[in-house]
Design a protein around this nucleic acid. Structure first.
Lengths: 229, 229
DNA sequence: CGACCATTTGATATGGATCAAGCGATGTGG
DNA sequence: CCACATCGCTTGATCCATATCAAATGGTCG
């Protein structure tokens, strides 16, 4: 369990769009396996899934749509921690409370699992425990790569982002971006203008093609990899 | 087990300074608890503990000294991932192989535990499994805070670094820095000059005092916190 | 004492931010 | 169905924080 396939196979009982801040009711049969405890929830564009500082009582896995996690700094700057795509799990970052807020970027369907149930199951089933650890370790690795992105030049960051998204996409030469330029900028620690200019520049050098602002075709992987430092 | 106190209490069998790349021999009694499986190793200043890409067969915990983990980018830039102080565990970041290299900053004594032994124990003992997860989750949180540092201004980064170090020190108003300015710069994604100038500036404004280059006294926490954004 | 290394300080250059305006797509009301 | 407002994105001009290049200072060890 806790893997994409297993959990994905269990979607049922939509709690319905528009249910906000209302974590799933405990009305599901608490069978012996995790999937029986998962509830599906839907969130519309820009709807909050949870807020920073809230008790982290649930784990989440994306069924469809995209989610961003973020933090607002004291001076209003927003840092996006991650983008989560279908199959990705999120919300298990912290201990007692969420370190980041989470919002749907586009309408999203999400599986929600009670944290305590998973933890309890993990206590009995060492496989579950191991997977819990593995998911967290993978997330750790992702954040470490994010750190490496943030020390690079603007061009390297944008290229790194495109390559990352391409890797996660079906066709890894064409990326459909669910997020806005502002989201990308806040993820990369750049301004929207710099992101835009960089994309334009990459298109000028024929490394990429931008048929529509949300769709990017990687034309020259070699060149991009080179620019990735 | 896996906690600082338990493991710390078990240091024995120094494999000796100068043993390089030689993970501990499996000569220790593999009793039922982790501490019986821990070997102590010593590393001198700048000595490599493990390299990026090596199989991650061991977990480490610092007994004394300081360790830095880092990555060298293609163009020679070095990014420091973390500084580990006595009591801290490291090396459990990744799955199969180390994502970062690790070096002793100052002569260090480190407890080394076979990864497979811990994992095996975790399979039987759910407490161990839970702690394994907890340590990884805490590390994840630390890296997330590092990300937040990296999007800030130079002054905010330096102040954030000082506050972080102060928090980890005994006397949280006086910090003894085991690492060089270059290490700090590579941790913060700045140049050595900018770090130096920023410290000088903070000293000028009486927020800190720098009796020697490796010792920093926090004079005005309120001012520092304000500068931390 | 003299050499070496870490750190600081100074002068200048530059990448990306900021401020500002234009453009194209999408949607809304008349 | 068209006029217009809105929103997301791009493009342009200028500014500034930090990098870069260079040199001076200070501390440590043989």
């Amino acid at each position: 369990m806790l893997t994409q396939t297993t959990i994905n196979g269990s979607s049922r009982q939509m709690l319905g769009k528009g249910v906000r801040r209302g974590p799933p009711i405990d009305c599901l049969p608490s069978g012996g396996s995790i999937e029986l405890m998962a509830a599906s929830m839907s969130f519309s564009r820009n709807e909050e899934i949870y807020a920073e500082g809230e008790p982290a009582d649930y784990f989440y896995q994306i069924v469809s749509g995209t989610v961003r996690t973020y933090k607002i700094l004291a001076d209003g700057r927003r840092q996006i921690g991650a983008f989560y795509l279908p199959g990705d799990m999120f919300g298990l970052e912290s201990a007692e409370e969420h370190a980041f807020s989470a919002e749907a970027i586009a309408d999203a369907k999400v599986l929600v699992i009670k944290r305590s149930a998973v933890v309890a199951l993990a206590q009995r089933d060492s496989d579950v425990a191991h997977q819990l650890w593995a998911v967290t370790a993978r997330e750790l690795q992702r954040v470490q790569e994010h750190v490496l992105l943030l020390i690079k030049t603007a061009q390297e960051r944008v290229v790194g982002f495109l390559l990352e998204m391409a890797e996660r996409a079906r066709d890894d030469n064409e990326v459909e971006l669910p997020m806005s330029r502002q989201d990308i900028a806040d993820y990369l620690g750049l301004t929207i203008e710099t992101v835009s200019r960089t994309l334009t520049h990459l298109a000028t050098t024929a490394a990429i093609e931008v048929p529509t602002s949300r769709r990017i075709v990687l034309r020259n992987r070699a060149a991009l990899s080179r620019l990735n430092a």
